[in-house]
Design a protein around this nucleic acid. Structure first.
Lengths: 247, 247
DNA sequence: CGAGGGTTTGAAGTGCATCAAATAGTGTGG
DNA sequence: CCACACTATTTGATGCACTTCAAACCCTCG
């Protein structure tokens, strides 16, 4: 719950290339794009920094260029439900553009992150002028929505071990060659809540996944011999078979 | 899994007023609106009719004017996850507009329904011309997305009885006077899957809800003395307190 | 009346949560 | 470089919630 503030501005060029890569702003005139660029601010945020809290007035949306950010909701009695954990290339906060009572969730940095913030007002304004921009926005939202649908399905139909397997599969590069080695991107407790389970359950479920599929785990390092090994285990109770490109 | 076909065309006027009410087409020129109207088809579908299945090529989107429709996904091993159950005034299938591989879920009529179908192609075409239309679409999607977020939160944080209480609350008209009487809109088995639980669990959880809150249940009829009674019970583990306008 | 679906009830099992405690890992100051 | 403090992770024991399988009940409709 830190609100510390080590925030270092970085060069415009970096910001520019980041913005171009995210797709949302494709098709804007260069004048329009420059408007954005002028108002873009890139900073470095420490772990624990809260970018915004549920209900805050929505003034900006964000693009991550490094690090990890957690999106979550808090209930009246203090529980926390992690909606998603995002990293470089991901966009967030932009869906607040149509919501009257501020951001629908909170966002907190979980691993030191570089983040570009952009004014929502400008986005809204340019959207009225550029159908292409609206279209991009729709695509973005559509993809998010599909992800959320999958998420709900997973919670309903997959057990803890399968959800972990699915999570690991999504960490694998599609073209990786066996055996695949990968590192868990953030700590196990956070992965657990990302997947809707308690840390203890995560630990046990991971152990079971290891026994059932033969993957090897050493601390935060995971080694997988073949993807079929995992996809057969995790994807059977899912409506889209591996590779599920939506997640 | 019926595919029967009793389909009766209805008058253009009815279709027109339905279309005007749904908000999505606000701001279109009358010429554009008429294009839509020309291609709108309203039919009556029997219970069990499958409007489209996951993966089908997406050619139309739909507006319900009467009855109930279930949106769901099916897994490889035959399980079914109900995404939502919709009724008059609800729109569905329109989010397939940006998806390359057809509808992301299946849609089946669960209570005889009158449904207007509209060509997705036309929507896409007009969206390029009318920023307002894109904007409407974005609002629609944004609302859907928020609903899905809530849904996920509920599955994570509420137990079965609380989810049923929440469901009942959303059936109540906000201005209803106590005691509130209402009828379950579709059968209990379907409500159960809508809420992500088995019929047996639903039955027992409903019994527990009755004991804990004092609501009265007689078959499909529910009587509630006060909303606080229910909201206190169901909404405490939720991030938005009653009345949660998003669902 | 009888068939069949929806609903409830009972008994037993499974999975995840909880509480408690041990262990491993990490960073700090000495 | 070590000892300590603190956090992350694992393990064990137990409980509760939901599911499963089975059977009874109920209601509607032909």
């Amino acid at each position: 719950m830190k609100t510390a503030t080590d925030q270092k501005a970085t060069s415009l060029e970096t910001v520019q290339s980041s913005l171009l890569n995210m797709g949302l702003l494709d098709g804007l005139s260069s004048a329009q794009f420059n408007d954005f660029l002028q108002q873009a601010v890139q900073k470095t945020y420490p772990k624990g920094f809260v970018l915004f809290a549920q209900g805050d007035e929505a003034e900006a949306f964000y693009l991550i260029t490094r690090g990890w950010v957690k999106l979550y909701r808090e209930t009246l009695d203090g529980e926390e439900a992690v909606v998603d954990v995002l990293t470089a290339g991901h966009l967030f906060g932009e869906t607040a553009i149509f919501e009257e009572d501020g951001y629908g969730m909170s966002a907190e940095v979980v691993e030191e992150a570089e983040i570009v913030s952009l004014p929502l007002g400008l986005l809204k304004q340019l959207m009225a002028e550029s159908p292409q921009l609206s279209m991009n926005m729709l695509k973005t939202m559509s993809r998010f929505r599909r992800q959320q649908d999958m998420e709900l399905e997973h919670r309903t139909l997959q057990n803890a071990s399968q959800r972990i397997g699915c999570f690991l599969l999504r960490l694998c590069k599609p073209d990786a060659k066996s055996p695949i080695r990968l590192n868990l991107p953030y700590d196990k407790t956070l992965i657990a809540s990302r997947l809707g389970m308690k840390p203890e359950t995560f630990s046990r479920a991971l152990a079971r996944l290891r026994e059932d599929t033969g993957i090897r785990i050493q601390g935060a390092t995971v080694e997988i011999d073949g993807l079929n090994q995992l996809s057969g285990y995790s994807c059977s109770t899912c409506s889209s078979s591996y590779p599920c490109k939506d997640l």
